[in-house]
Write a protein that binds this DNA or RNA. Structure first.
Length: 436
DNA sequence: TCTGGGGTCCTAGGACCC
DNA sequence: TCTGGGGTCCTAGGACCC
């Protein structure tokens, strides 16, 4: 008698692979002199430190600390700061993902520096799960120069936690599989880890949990799900199941379409004129529409918002937003820009010093199932679709803003600051690194 | 110049209408 | 004229994550 292969569902086994200090590590690959130099990479507009080298973390610098608040510390400890270079990071990210696909075809690219993999079908290829993790680490290091840590567990939440342990405790040597631990070992590690380290438990929920006497991950894992449900809802109940090894979150191999798309930026300086606000809103709308078309969706509602500098209470504050429902859902940059500028016209007031502007696309649906209006002109539709297709193709081939709407303008006095960006080493012929 | 990110989802509550 | 429920739309803001 044969046994039907696959009849028994395999126990779930997930891995989370995460690049250490991703942006900082990308910069160091191309500038080895930055190894061991305390280094931060700043967010858009050179605002906050969004990536910190281990030396900087050791100084107690928290995620998203404003750079200007770090100036003294930077002088004191020789911290260097680079503007972010998303073109470089995006390209390096793709390289890591393509390596990981060789390890398991079941992969969810969770963020620019993190991927979940389902590994239960491929684990038999290795003597031990840790050997698989080690193989991932060394191949990524060798092929891209980037250091990663690997966490494994019976659910995505456990894999994420294991990754945290692998990063934080040298004893794991960069690879931690919670499934491979004995029960006392598991209890030990979960008991010395604060509940705030759990995926989905942020600062506020941490505080509320602690007030209930739930301090550690082990405490949370041992809490009655009924209690968690009444106090925090189904999401926390699910997190607790995941911590107990019951996998509730599937791998999202196909990225689900966004229900809301935001494009916004702070300005490099205060903006007062309506014309400049219009240019920035048009620019943001173009970017939002590119994202919308990339997921083959249409939007039936847009919002436009502008705001003054909330950190300057001495200046008059104004932060209006306006929603506009469209007669018909669409993905045409020109149509949506037109609507956004109309909206801006309604909320704009002269006399304020604006610091940020943005657009939101919502009421999003699949383009294929688009509701048709009674009086639609199909020929016009095709014309619009063709135009957008050509625009996207040209901008992909020849670089952003090769072709754009006139509303975006050509002055960029309001553009964000980016004072210390490294070259586009891997994506631009003129900026390839030199090896002497 | 005088510094403070960006994105997604979700919900409370006000305004308005039936 | 007064009262109330319930729905929708919109705005504001919380929470989380990287």
């Amino acid at each position: 008698m044969g046994v039907a292969i696959g009849a028994v569902p395999r126990a779930a086994h997930f891995a989370l692979v995460d690049v250490n200090n991703f942006y900082v590590s990308c910069e160091r690959v191309f500038q080895p002199r930055l190894e061991r130099v305390p280094l931060v990479v700043l967010s858009n507009n050179d605002g906050c430190a969004v990536a910190r080298s281990s030396e900087v973390k050791a100084l107690g610098v928290k995620m998203a600390t404003p750079w200007f608040l770090l100036k003294d510390l930077a002088v004191q400890h020789g911290i260097q700061a680079l503007s972010s270079n998303y073109t470089l990071y995006g390209d390096m990210s793709e390289r890591v993902v393509s390596i990981l696909r060789d390890f398991s075809p079941d992969i969810e690219v969770y963020s620019i520096d993190e991927s979940f993999l389902r590994i239960d079908a491929v684990l038999h290829l290795y003597p031990h799960s840790l050997a698989m993790g080690e193989a991932m680490r060394s191949r990524i290091r060798q092929w891209t120069g980037l250091p990663v840590c690997v966490g494994m567990g019976a659910s995505k939440t456990l894999a994420k936690l294991a990754n945290h342990l692998a990063k934080k405790h040298a004893v794991f040597n960069g690879v931690c599989d919670l499934n491979a631990l004995t029960d006392p070992e598991l209890e030990h590690w979960l008991s010395i880890t604060e509940v705030g380290e759990v995926w989905g438990v942020g600062r506020q929920i941490s505080l509320r949990l602690q007030a209930m006497g739930i301090q550690t991950v082990w405490d949370l894992r041992s809490t009655s799900q009924k209690i968690l449900r009444t106090h925090f809802g189904v999401v926390m109940e699910r997190t607790c199941s995941e911590l107990n090894g019951i996998s509730c979150l599937e791998l999202e191999e196909v990225v689900p379409a966004k229900q809301q798309i935001i494009a916004s930026r702070s300005f490099g300086r205060a903006v007062t004129s309506r014309e400049e606000l219009e240019e920035s809103v048009a620019t943001h709308m173009a970017r939002a529409c590119e994202k919308l078309r990339a997921q083959s969706s249409v939007a039936a509602m847009i919002q436009v918002f502008v705001r003054t500098n909330r950190f300057k209470p001495s200046e008059p504050q104004y932060s209006p937003s306006i929603a506009i429902r469209l007669a018909e859902a669409c993905d045409d940059t020109l149509v949506l820009t037109d609507a956004a500028l109309t909206g801006l016209g309604r909320i704009f007031k002269a006399g304020y010093r604006y610091k940020k502007a943005g657009v939101v696309l919502s009421s999003i649906s699949e383009k294929a199932q688009q509701q048709r209006g009674l009086f639609d002109d199909r020929a016009l539709d095709h014309k619009s679709a063709d135009l957008m297709k050509v625009m996207d193709a040209l901008n992909t081939r020849f670089g952003k803003k090769t072709v754009h709407s006139a509303a975006m303008g050509n002055t960029t006095g309001w553009a964000m600051r980016s004072e210390n960006r490294s070259p586009h080493y891997t994506t631009c012929w003129d900026e390839l690194p030199f090896v002497r």
